[in-house]
């Protein structure tokens, strides 16, 4: 499992305004969701971790090495990132070529890359579409191609930026299963999302960003119980928890199963 330490991290796109204003935390083995208002610095943080941006002050240590001292190519072997918009990521004419591109670029042997690509396509449910042009697929399937192309790289760290956008019920369930499997394989899984139900269902730990700062970091349930934090970050509780709150329960739950068990007990 990768160890990621964020130390006094700062970043600004322009001289006038800092986007990341001094963050300190460590990513551990738990599946982690990063949530916050639009413009809170979530995607910028992901790009810093991926090495696409370099900190203006402070650093991110990946297994003890600062990302400042690593090239994008070096980081690509350890950190995979699924972009919010698959069109920013996909450029090959066939699904299989797209999924093979990453593993081959990081030096994976051809046979192994092929095996990883096939496994990744199976995980996202796109087996059989290997020769299809990704741009002949709908947005949701194209997003799953982007997910598969990162899974196939078999990196230690996997970052998802808004993976549930455009996904229907089946797509969301598949993504939850992928997060669970990656977690079981000992991978470090970090997701940026506005989908609070997805966070409640699939992530053990939740970090809240607001105005370029980290304002909460705890197990998911504890974070969603902090109303002042949610208000400050323009967030809301997951739907099951909203119902607990409305009913005035002294303790809240996150999932439908927990809610139903509580009533039936």
């Amino acid at each position: 499992m990768a160890v990621i330490e964020i130390k006094d991290l700062h970043f600004s796109y322009t001289a006038e305004e800092e986007v990341i204003k001094g963050m300190n935390f460590t990513i551990d083995a738990r599946s982690t969701a990063i949530i916050g208002q639009n413009g809170a610095g979530k995607t910028t943080f992901a790009k810093l971790l991926k090495g696409l941006l370099k900190p203006t002050k402070g650093e991110i240590l990946l297994n003890g090495t600062s990302t400042k001292d690593m090239t994008v190519a070096m980081l690509a072997k350890q950190v995979g990132m699924v972009f919010q918009n698959p069109n920013d990521q996909i450029f090959k004419y066939q699904v299989l070529d797209e999924v093979l591109f990453g593993p081959l670029q990081i030096g994976m042997a051809k046979e192994n890359a092929r095996r990883k690509a096939e496994q990744a396509l199976e995980a996202v449910g796109l087996t059989g579409l290997e020769t299809t042009n990704p741009y002949d697929l709908g947005l949701s399937a194209r997003k799953l191609v982007a997910v598969a192309s990162i899974l196939a790289m078999d990196t230690e760290v996997i970052l998802f930026d808004e993976p549930t956008i455009a996904q229907d019920y089946a797509g969301k369930e598949r993504l939850k299963e992928i997060v669970r499997q990656l977690r079981n394989q000992g991978k470090t899984v970090i997701t940026i999302t506005h989908d609070m139900n997805f966070v409640a269902d699939a992530f053990e730990r939740t970090i809240v960003f607001a105005g370029g700062k980290m304002i909460a970091d705890d197990d998911t349930k504890s974070v969603f119980l902090q109303k002042d934090v949610l208000e400050k970050a323009y967030l809301e509780q997951p739907d099951v928890m909203k119902l607990c709150t409305e009913l005035g329960w002294r303790e809240s739950v996150l999932s439908i199963d927990e809610f139903v068990s509580a009533i039936q007990k």
């Binding site: 208002q37 639009n38 919010q84 956008i165 455009a166 506005h194 609070m196 323009y234 967030l235």
Partner: peptide
């Protein structure tokens, strides 16, 4: 779909 909960 791309908005935070309050923006939504």
């Amino acid at each position: 779909s791309q908005l935070d909960p309050q923006g939504r």
